[in-house]
Design a protein around this nucleic acid. Structure first.
Lengths: 255, 255
DNA sequence: CATAGGATG
DNA sequence: CATCATATG
């Protein structure tokens, strides 16, 4: 069994102060897909770097902004950064680690909440990203795209859906994009293991005590090819840790 | 007896979080000369504004920067802001409150620690300020200029003096300026009440545990005309409070 | 080392 | 509401 966790840490240094290392030791994932590192590699706290994982990073040009990583107990056979689109790759949003039996991606899609300019870039990112996804959809080697997509797919993925139809992250065109990505050949592994189950979220606003009231959004996914998804056994959102505004989404695969 | 406190709060909002109101209630000064407010008047915490003091402010153009105030139990007969030099007055460094029997000033001299440009401005400020001091030196009404001058006068006003002769705040020309200000007709009231006494400081760097080791500087003064200084009875640096990197310098005058 | 404001989420 | 960068001290 391989346990893979997807976790937007909202600043690895902040998460470290709140007990990131305790989480790693207790949850003990084999692979951790990190998003929003908000640090350069050499700014990652020493206690984290001393964990028994191979670390691979893809950071943004801009300091303190974005950045993804994959930590793995096993050393990857190959690591790739970005998707080959310059402006995207300078924002540190995609990294891939290839192992003998599968590939893992750590993905951080742009947020569109700050206005039209960023919303337009988000949609551009998504358009390019779907083509990137097509490259791996029919490959013999199973793949899983873990990360923060900043989109809730369906009404049960967001609290108070009726009031959110004009909110970035739940716009019709964004939700449609998730549907299209699934049509390319990916499966929403967490949802398949918890079909129809309500009130399962992976992000809560820091405002208005959203987490204690569980007024959240499910925007962090494992999107996997069928050969990967069929191996999934158990999926959990690790809500008990308060390390970030997101919670780790951890899934065990029988590989 | 009138107790006047001079206190660089290093951000009134931060000082408030650490118990500024407790200090006011326990120390109970009649007049508080505040420096480095680092807030607009309407950003001052409500609990402070609800204290039983008349408040008068002189803030900087730049938000979160500099700013002085005088809080007084009695309402001033007159309040004046600045010294009539535009660039100085836009930095919120001087306010005067006039009462029946005396005048009080709250002064915040520039720091020169960030480099030559600011050091030059500090010396320019001091040159203009000495002319401002001359206006009140021979006035019948006693005056006291309370504040943070960012200068240690003599070797006993700074820890480790032999190593500081090239440090902004203890440069020969700065120390000479204090001497000249005294020659204009002001007295260093705290020092006159504690002549020759060592290890009396009003500021400690936040670095290297300077305060617990009492590795400080005395840069906050009551500089008073003779008619004011002769009324001083008791002077204390209130080190027990940890509200700022400075401590309040409180002197009681028999007026 | 600490306080602010500003950008970003 | 929170994290980070930058200016200032």
């Amino acid at each position: 069994m391989i346990k893979i966790s997807s976790f937007n840490v909202n600043g690895i240094r902040a998460a470290h102060r709140k007990g990131f290392v305790d989480w790693v030791e207790e949850s003990d994932p084999d692979i951790i897909c990190i998003q929003e590192l908000r640090a350069l590699e050499n700014q990652v706290p020493k206690q984290i770097r001393e964990l028994d994982y191979h670390e691979n990073y893809h950071v943004a040009d801009k300091k303190g902004y974005s950045g993804v990583a994959i930590y793995s107990k096993e050393e990857p056979l190959k690591v790739e950064h970005g998707i080959g689109v310059d402006w995207i790759d300078r924002e540190g949003r995609i990294i891939m680690a290839e192992f003998e039996k599968f590939r893992v991606f750590s993905i951080y899609a742009p947020s569109g909440t700050t206005g039209d300019v960023r919303q337009d870039m988000k949609m551009k990112f998504l358009a390019d990203f779907i083509r990137f996804g097509e490259r791996y959809a029919n490959d013999d080697k199973p793949s899983v795209f873990c990360g923060d997509y900043n989109i809730c797919h369906t009404e049960i993925d967001i609290h108070n859906p009726s009031k959110q139809h004009k909110t970035s992250g739940f716009l019709p065109e964004e939700r449609q994009w998730v549907t299209e990505f699934l049509e390319v050949g990916y499966q929403d592994v967490f949802r398949e293991l918890h079909p129809g189950e309500e009130d399962l979220y992976s992000w809560w606003s820091y405002r208005a005590a959203s987490k204690e009231r569980n007024k959240g959004w499910r925007i962090d996914y494992h999107l996997a090819t069928p050969k990967m998804a069929e191996k999934a056994e158990e999926a959990e959102i690790e809500m008990k840790w308060d390390l970030s505004d997101h919670a780790p989404v951890s899934i065990s695969y029988k590989l």
